[in-house]
Computed example of a mutant assay.
Amino acid sequence: MILNHLWGLYAHPKEEWHTIDARHESFRYSLAHIMIVALIPAICTYFSAVHLGWSIGVGERIYLTADSATLISVAMYFALIIGVFALGLLAHWMAHTFGAEPTYTQTLELAAYTSTPLFMVGFAALYPELWFVMSVGLVGLAYSVYLLYVGVPILMHIPEERGFIYASSVVTCGLVLLVCVMTATAILWSSGFGPAFTH
């Protein structure tokens, strides 16, 4: 069943990683998981931007036109999916340096399940106050990093000391990917692809 590891990763992450490792799912299963959870931030952000309005702390709420919000949400959806695949690819490439021999599907599982808490932060957009979304986002990021540090030694079958360094390298790659996405967004916005606001 799709998303069947979701509760376990929150309730008992270490045991759940062992379960994931014991019966690796197919590439298609990981893809389905990513495609479903990536819908959460895309849909919630669209709804809040069009119907609820964002509050950035000062002034009136900011609303986007439906067309503009749709474009941004679709772009966000595909960017999130591509980001997870890229992270899985980088994790696979680095694994050999740390004495692990995973398949790409295994590193994609690692990337998919560790990024899930970040995707779940999308629900916070239904209360579109910037301070609230940022606070929940930090909690989601912290838990994603925690899942990564717990999951790497189990899924990659390497000692915890080496797993710590490997996980730190993956976190660094993830941050670099995030900066790349933010830079690309800034370039697109300044090139005339920015959002259209309603008054």
Rank of each mutant, 00 (worst) to 15 (best):
L6I: 09
L9Q: 00
H12E: 13
H12L: 08
P13W: 04
E16A: 01
E16I: 03
H18R: 15
R23T: 13
E25I: 12
A32Q: 12
H33Q: 14
M35F: 15
V37G: 01
T45P: 07
F47Y: 15
F47G: 06
S48D: 00
W54H: 02
G57S: 10
G57C: 05
V58G: 07
E60F: 10
R61G: 10
I62F: 03
I62D: 08
D67S: 14
A75N: 10
A79Q: 09
I82F: 11
F85N: 05
A86N: 10
A86C: 11
A86L: 15
L89W: 04
H92N: 14
M94N: 12
P102K: 07
Y104M: 06
T107C: 04
L110P: 03
A112E: 01
Y113G: 07
P117V: 00
F119W: 06
F119S: 08
M120A: 09
G122D: 02
A124K: 00
L126E: 06
L130Y: 09
W131Q: 11
F132R: 05
M134N: 13
S135L: 15
S135P: 08
V136A: 11
V139I: 14
G140R: 04
L141N: 08
Y146W: 12
Y146D: 07
L147E: 02
Y149F: 15
G151A: 00
P153M: 01
E161L: 12
G174H: 00
L177P: 01
C180R: 04
T183R: 12
T183E: 14
A184P: 03
L188T: 11
S190C: 12
S190V: 13
F193L: 09
F193Q: 05
T198M: 15
